[in-house]
Computed example of a mutant assay.
Amino acid sequence: MGVTCVCQVPVAEGKSVQQTVDMVHKKLEQLGAVKQGSFCVDCETYHATGTVSGQPSKLLYVMHNSETPLSCLALFENGPCLVADANFDVLMVKLKSHFQNAKGHKVECRGSRYRYCDFLIKVGTVTMSSSARGISVEVRAYCQ
């Protein structure tokens, strides 16, 4: 288990999200980083259909990561986190009377993975409803 840091990268002034991502890729390659493929992380938001004791319903976030394709994460707002089988989505469909998918709130981060010395670097474009919203960079100490 290594140390991981995820940060948001500002879009360069006068540039688009994609142009800024391309600039980051170019800088990594100039440093000697080697491209090792791609990744995708997505998050779907659900809200509880009923209320409990007059309290507003909490949100449930279901996340998938291409690096762990056989599992997913389910996180309650300000609550517990569950690591589940990838078929958890099927369960969410069966629970549609209790949880509704918040349409238009799917967030996705797609991009490229690089290896540089002892680090794994992932640069991704964050999108919501097919619209680019930002850039994410994850740097992780590489452990084998």
Rank of each mutant, 00 (worst) to 15 (best):
T4C: 09
V6T: 14
C7A: 14
C7M: 14
A12K: 03
A12W: 03
E13V: 09
K15Q: 14
V17N: 04
Q19A: 13
V21K: 01
K26F: 05
K27F: 05
L31C: 05
A33R: 07
K35P: 01
G37L: 07
G37M: 06
C40M: 15
V41P: 06
C43Y: 03
Y46A: 04
A48F: 12
T49R: 15
G54D: 11
S57K: 12
K58H: 12
L59M: 07
S71W: 13
L75V: 15
E77I: 07
N78V: 01
N78T: 02
P80T: 15
C81E: 12
C81Y: 01
N87F: 09
N87K: 09
D89R: 11
L91W: 02
L91S: 08
K94T: 07
K96S: 15
K96W: 02
S97Y: 03
N101R: 15
A102R: 13
K103P: 04
V107T: 13
E108M: 12
C109M: 05
G111I: 00
S112R: 09
R115F: 11
R115L: 13
Y116D: 03
C117I: 10
C117A: 15
D118V: 03
D118P: 00
L120M: 14
I121E: 00
I121A: 04
V123E: 00
S130R: 07
S131Y: 11
R133I: 10
S136A: 11
V139S: 06
Y142L: 15
